[in-house]
């Protein structure tokens, strides 16, 4: 996985001048989220609400932006629409990953003076290379050797790494998927019931 896949967090953000000051204040209010299968902009943030005792659709109204379902929120579309919904006062909070908060407060999409981070999720891991357990080690080892030979200090590697959004490839791990696992179970995501 990329160094940037580890220890990500998502935020629930709200308008600084608004009435929402705590997650509990969202009871009876509306939260804008990304596509139904976006871990960072929907499943994990809704899991945060559940951890605060707020059941999506029962205690909090959810405005979902189902852009490109099936692509697991890889694109920014749904998160951006969710933010626009908050900006237009059609929601009281919106969900987004920390990386998009950083980018959008820097490029002017979000005025950091107008919005505030209401809550931060526990850290979670993002993408990984998945292999079948029966994939022969003699084929996997060369792959890992070449992967880990990429170095950000090497100008020839930098462009590729910038495009992919990382400074270093790090060993994969599964320990960072617990939070999402909890969210999909509580929201019965794989059972076909969408949050």
């Amino acid at each position: 996985m990329r160094d940037t896949d580890r220890e990500r967090v998502s935020y629930l953000i709200t308008k600084t001048q608004g009435r929402i000051k705590t997650v509990e204040d969202l009871r009876g209010k509306t939260v804008a989220v990304g596509a139904k299968d976006s871990p960072q902009a929907t499943l994990i943030p809704l899991g945060l609400l559940q951890r605060h005792g707020l059941q999506p659709e029962r205690d909090v109204q959810v405005r979902r932006f189902d852009l490109m379902v099936g692509k697991h929120g890889d694109h920014i579309g749904g998160e951006l629409e969710a933010f626009k919904c908050l900006a237009a006062d059609e929601a009281d909070a919106s969900a987004l990953i920390d990386l998009n908060w950083q980018t959008w407060t820097q490029d002017g999409t979000i005025n950091p003076g107008e919005y505030t981070i209401l809550a931060t999720t526990e850290p979670f891991d993002h993408c990984c290379f998945t292999v079948r357990a029966d994939f022969p080690p003699e084929r996997e080892q060369p792959f890992l050797r070449v992967l880990f030979s990429m170095h950000y200090d090497n100008p020839k590697h930098r462009e590729m790494m910038d495009l992919e959004g990382l400074k270093a490839w790090v060993p994969g791990r599964t320990s960072g998927y617990g939070l999402l696992h909890e969210a999909v179970e509580k929201q019965q995501f794989f059972a076909g019931t969408t949050p």
Binding site: H72, G73, H126, C127, T130, V131, Y177
Partner: peptide, 10 residues
Amino acid sequence: DIAWNSPLAW
């Protein structure tokens, strides 16, 4: 052989 997976795909 290998899939670049999202956490949900994993």
